[in-house]
């Protein structure tokens, strides 16, 4: 997301006659920015450093909220679950989305139909999606029946878990829901990137005798690596903030086994009315996301290829 080059000569000089006009144009937006972002951020920081309950501010707490978090096993549980969502969802979504985009980038009949269907979950209300997945992954639900039936046909028996009632498998049901919901988005973004790869590069590689895999490995992948980087960071930030999927599907259970950090923030703030603890958690998450993004930004120079366009 680079800003276009500043090409107007006197661009940076301000004009007296546009001084007040400029402020007036920005005013509505600036008011919102001031209240819902700047004030909110400072407010949140203040809450996280104080004792804050049902009646509001009680007293300053220093670092106590943060220290209490580090001793809270449920917080660590939620953090672990969130990391689990991150490492399962993000890579599989990239791989599946790219595979779907590559398939749809071929000159085939019916591409429009496939894209219509693959993108449908993206525009679906996630709550409705989560309700269906509750049914799909229920103990005697369609997923278990199908797998058991298929296994029986092949002549062996399998014991399928009661996904949503299992501390081990509930998380996986959430992962499948998220993949179903979001892969179409990844696919569409990749598709746009694939269509931007210059045809000549493939022709040249072809002339040099590169086979399909070599063309993919040495032309396609480097050319779409900025998109991969963008999707990776974007999806990772989304996974850090996963809320609705586990909230509707499992309510975080059983025994907090699918609880995400944002879900725990929600429960702390709006069920237990511990705004202070919840705010400290939100800042913890922010720092986590920030460091993660910083590391990715540093690492991108090793694998992201930016075309220098003249």
């Amino acid at each position: 997301m680079t800003l276009p080059s500043e090409h107007h000569r006197s661009w940076r000089r301000w004009r007296p006659d546009q001084q007040w006009e400029g402020y007036l144009f920005i005013l509505p937006s600036f008011l919102g920015f001031l209240v819902f972002v700047i004030a909110a951020v400072l407010f949140s920081l203040g809450i996280s450093f104080s004792h804050w309950g049902l009646t509001g501010f009680k007293e300053w707490a220093g670092l106590q909220n943060y220290q209490a978090l580090l001793r809270d096993p449920v917080f660590w549980r939620a953090l672990g679950n969130t990391l689990f969502y991150l490492i399962t969802i993000v890579p599989s979504q990239l791989v599946l989305g790219l595979a779907m985009a590559l398939a749809l980038n071929q000159a085939l009949r019916g591409i429009g139909f496939y894209r219509l269907i693959y993108f449908m979950p993206v525009v679906t209300t996630i709550v409705a999606g989560a309700i269906v997945f509750r049914l799909l992954f229920s103990a005697q639900g369609p997923v278990n029946s199908f797998i058991e039936g298929a296994a029986a046909l092949l002549g062996f028996g399998v014991e399928m878990p009661n996904w949503l009632g299992s501390t081990r498998y509930a998380k996986w049901a959430v992962v499948f829901l998220t993949l179903w919901k979001n892969t179409g988005f990844t696919m569409v973004i990749y598709l746009a990137a694939l269509q931007g790869v210059p045809r000549e590069l493939y022709d040249a590689a072809h002339t040099d005798g590169a086979n399909a895999w070599q063309r993919f490995r040495n032309v396609t992948l480097p050319m779409i690596s900025p998109t991969t980087f963008f999707l990776f960071v974007f999806q990772a930030i989304g996974a850090f903030q996963l809320f609705t999927e586990p909230f509707v599907m499992t309510r975080g259970g059983p025994a907090n086994s699918s609880l995400s950090v944002v879900q725990y923030i929600y429960f702390a703030a709006f069920r237990d009315i511990r705004m202070d603890k919840a705010s400290a958690m939100a800042w913890f998450l922010f720092v986590f996301i920030f460091i993660f993004t910083l590391i990715q930004n540093r690492m991108q120079q090793h694998w992201v290829y930016y075309e220098t366009s003249e």
């Binding site: 920005i26 703030a269 705004m275 919840a278």
Partner: peptide, 23 residues
Amino acid sequence: LFLLYLATLMIPFPVTLIPNFLI
């Protein structure tokens, strides 16, 4: 001011959720 706007893009939604509710 525009840079300040851009800088806040980094802030995740959960941070502003609670204060905005209180506001």
